[in-house]
Design a binder for these strands. Structure first.
Lengths: 597, 597
DNA sequence: ATGTTGGCAATGTGCCGACAA
DNA sequence: TTGTCGGCACATTGCCAACAT
């Protein structure tokens, strides 16, 4: 099936080679997710400076002269080495690719990637026991620990002595940086379940995890436990000014690349698989293959993409235009030259521009078959002359075969609940290089980005909204100048028996009352921000930080709360609130709806 | 006295000019301390690339070719502008100096700095009401607020209505970045005293203040309150890899400077007054003046320096050698070419190398008068030929006059307790430029670094060691597998009536017991780290984080604690401990002495 | 005059089983 | 099977006056 089984052993041997960077290979891929794969050393790729510039942003590009560095639209490169990294602050995975420009003639036509050095360092030969769980509100609450799915615990953790009343052990897991995290793993409760207690909270705090994020446990061949995270949203950068995070110092900028291209020297690319802008390096065969099927306006296609829970989907759409994305700086570029309209409910990407090598023609030819459409010009108007001759547009659709679908079926593996242990192979590895022919015999060449790595299922449900509806009722006591808390005696809380205080609640634009959040550690700026009424101004609620409170300064703690409603003394109030437990949640998702009486 | 009084008005006018950078002028200088002054725009200075390279460290210098950039030993420069800044992370003050190289001929010989643009933007014309207090253990404890010295509160804060039982108000103060901090200022207690309560703790936390650091309040002309800090020690950089903190991106490196020198263009220097390496820019007159008195081996001298509490001292010493500091890369440089031996108890600097312009000859000629000593060679052996002709060594000491002492007397101002309000003038400003003649009439030219700014006294005492001696005595209970706290019942605490638990204490290398710190918020890494015995291994104490504890993982929390001593069940223990309040203290200063029974 | 301490109240943290989805 | 909750114990925070220096 295009994959030489003989290579597996070699790969396992070469996997011992310590050239993959500081980060554990399996863990890196587990964190990167199923749709990420990397080329091997020695492999040939196509590099698109335009896409790179897009990722870097204008800040790092330093446009010169004609508006861009004088670099080609695409560059054929050999992969000199690949090193895996993880951001020190956020644990975000990325890779350093060392590339060296080659002329297309240097690329061998056989399937070996043209290098004796090619190895499998980019892929674990065998995925270890692992599981991934999306964190619930309970998992991230300061009130408790982490509930481990039973089969996950049995699969990944050392066995417990279930004869004991409360079997427990200490787990030690290393994260991407090699830092050790220790957890008490206990099997208790009625019914019994696996829990991580002591140590868990510190981990959540340090990694700034919120509900919706996912953790990943992975047991290596040696029994060593590894631990990774996959965030639901980007962690906000708290660094006050732009630090060149993933690109060490000022390497990796376009200027450096331009220089390297002309001197034919090695240059480094920071490849950030999860930011959605890193598709500027693709396998050579994929680039070549994209010429094999015709592309025309009105053509239907499908494309693989990743949905929010990191699972894969297939989106379909219609090509509505072909033309330069940036006619001034990158004229004639095929980078995102296709303008598409996604089918209903298939909002694969906010951006409706994609590159030709991202799509496959749809087997079911819908839309307007037989309609001959000219490509649009740089200004997105039909003008065939602007498209280079090497780009076969308007070829009548013929026997295109969905090889990738075939290979997907071949590589289909167990995607059972959340744990598995199956050997896999990188699709980048030893893939025959395609020659630009339709219907070439590339049965083994799947889409590396999607099937190259084992899919790790996440818990399917979106984390629940955690809207325990409680009703607070009470009277606002007049402010008398004594700095004692007036809240607690003035409030009657329904729904909780004890230990409930106003600071447990988050409110949003409450007509007659506003209470800043004290719920979430990740929210607090000044930590202590309990509220007290101040009626010196009759129609405005004012209160402040501090135990015994004084004024509201505003609601900087929660960006959603942005207005303070007028307040009346002795007016009763009532509102819906969050569950009072200490919940770490994503910002902006923390506000209860207000029920105005 | 060399200062043109006419200029004062002009200065006040020009002080309104918004060209001093983002930071409040008065506050910047207050934070920088008394021994820091800056040149004005238009002023002429001498820049020493060697000293700059020293500050930047090899990392940023990028030595090329012969080992250094091909830059001169010193460069005469005009100050194009000066901008005041404060580090976003640490609040450390620094300045951006924009310099432009000039030839010495361009420097006017009159006293005007050669520029019509010179102004006093570097100096507040009048120091506002201010005070500075070194934080005590109580001030930084989480247990309480900030005790404001009475005269300070009366001087800087709006008056309170003392007729009330507990007069209070809200203070709003802006820090160096313009961020507002709010504090409740209350006058209470028996006897009455001024306190900052609500809001103070948040400030201490955010700024990571520890006892020994100082805060500074400053009331502007407009009544606006400003707030700064001066740390006792450097705040440890928590950034995981070297970020170019004060020099934005890669400006300010020697490469950039070298380029600017040859193109005669403006270059920026980050001038960091408190790191002890920023004396590589000095006033031109000072450089010139240093030729006016002879320097010889065996000569006694004095030098102004700053002691730990930011007050000024005068150190004396003996010149023991003259020679290149770095004969390979900077041959013939006068930068720190003097080797000195400090007098007893006068350890002005660990470094015993200083530059000629830093010293003044000592009026009292001690040591070996009349002894003719040849300067030492590059290898610090006597060899007169290695010293350039423009450097007048071995001139017999004659009528040198200590002008700077005169000017100090002139500029002497009130240095009363901790608050004052006196107009001052920058010594950089409109200082006549000295021609290289001994006994020139430079009566107004003081030592800018020391008298240029009002000294702000700090509390004189070093913050007390906070060693309340308590004796804990108890029995280590055997571990029985139930994860309940075993500490509290097993311990009998003498000296405190209530709310004392073992986690309040810090121990150090205790023979039979070790308890990690939970005392200091700034210490904690995992926050919850209470200890419990684990006697599964009989001779080793193990405990861990978490409320109900399990194992000691080691003592990563406090670097001083680095060994865990063996532990025996049922063995009684006893040790001296810190005061149990939550004290934020500098690292490594937090350990109690152990009394082994 | 002001640093330190005990008293005290409020609140946060974290382990546990109960309960329910 | 596992997410959420009440119960509970205890730790931390922060305002206050008493006391000491």
């Amino acid at each position: 099936m295009g994959i030489d089984l003989n290579t597996v052993e070699e790969e396992e041997e070469e996997a011992k080679e310590e050239d993959a960077g500081p980060v554990c290979l399996e863990l890196w891929h587990a964190c990167a997710g199923p749709s990420v794969s990397l080329p091997n050393k020695g492999y040939f790729v196509v590099y698109f400076p335009q896409g790179h510039a897009e990722q870097l942003g204008d800040f790092y590009c330093g446009d010169v002269g004609n508006g861009r560095f004088d670099v080609p639209l695409h560059v054929f490169c050999r992969v000199v080495h690949v090193r895996l990294h993880a951001d020190v602050e956020t644990d975000e995975v990325y890779a350093q690719l060392a590339l060296m420009a080659v002329s297309e003639e240097e690329i061998p036509k056989d399937g070996d990637g043209g290098s004796d050095e090619s190895d499998s360092e980019r892929r674990p030969a065998r995925m270890p026991h692992m599981f991934c769980k999306t964190l619930t509100a309970s998992d991230t609450s300061t009130h408790g620990g982490f509930s481990v799915p039973r089969r996950a615990a049995e699969d990944c953790f050392p066995p417990l002595d279930y004869k004991l009343q409360r079997p427990s052990q200490e787990l030690v897991a290393k994260d991407l940086h090699g830092t050790e995290w220790r957890f008490r793993h206990i099997y208790r409760g009625q019914p019994r379940r696996h829990l991580l207690t002591t140590g868990w909270s510190a981990f959540v705090n340090k990694k700034k995890l919120v509900s919706g994020d996912a953790v990943l446990f992975l047991r290596g061949e040696d029994g060593e436990l590894r631990l990774g995270i996959r965030r639901a949203g980007q962690l906000k950068d708290t660094t006050p000014f732009p630090v060149l995070h993933n690109q060490s110092s000022n390497h990796g900028t376009l200027a450096t690349v331009a220089h390297a291209l002309y001197t034919k020297s090695v240059f480094n690319i920071s490849y950030n698989p999860r930011d959605g802008h890193s598709s500027f390096i693709i396998p050579y065969w994929k680039f070549v293959k994209s010429f094999s099927h015709p592309i025309s306006i009105g053509m239907r296609f499908k494309m693989r993409c990743e949905s929010e829970d990191a699972s894969e989907r297939r989106c379909t759409g219609l090509i509505t235009g072909i033309g330069d994305m940036d006619p001034l700086r990158w004229p004639g570029s095929k980078w995102r030259c296709l303008l598409v309209r996604w089918d209903e409910g298939e909002e694969c990407r906010k951006n409706s521009r994609i590159s030709p090598w991202e799509i496959e023609p749809n087997n079911v030819v819908a839309g307007s078959p037989g309609l001959t459409v000219s490509p649009i010009s740089k200004r997105l108007k039909p003008n065939p002359s602007t498209v280079g001759p090497e780009f076969p547009v308007c070829t009548s659709g013929n026997g295109y075969q969905d090889y990738s679908e075939t290979s997907r079926r071949f590589q289909k593996v167990l995607q059972g609940q959340e744990y598995f242990s199956v050997g896999i192979k990188s699709s980048w590895d030893r893939i025959p290089v395609a020659t630009p022919q339709p219907q070439s015999q590339l049965l083994g060449a799947g889409f590396p980005e999607s099937v190259g790595f084992q899919k790790v299922l996440q818990g399917q449900e979106i984390h629940p909204c955690y809207h325990t509806t409680l009703t607070l009722a009470g009277t606002i006591a007049p402010y008398n100048g004594a700095y004692r808390s007036r809240w607690t005696p003035a409030l009657q809380v329904q729904g909780y028996a004890n230990q409930v205080s106003p600071s447990h609640f988050v409110s949003r634009a409450i007509p007659n009352l506003a209470i800043p959040s004290r719920v979430n550690r990740n929210f607090v700026s000044g930590r202590k921000d309990q509220v007290e009424m101040n009626t010196t101004s009759k129609n405005k609620l004012e209160s402040s930080g501090g135990r015994d409170g004084c004024r509201i300064f505003g609601f900087s703690l929660n960006p959603v709360i942005d207005e303070v409603a007028p307040c009346q003394v002795d007016k009763e109030f009532e509102f819906e609130a969050l569950n009072p437990r200490s919940i770490r949640k994503p910002l902006g998702n923390n506000c209860a709806t207000v029920k105005c009486p």
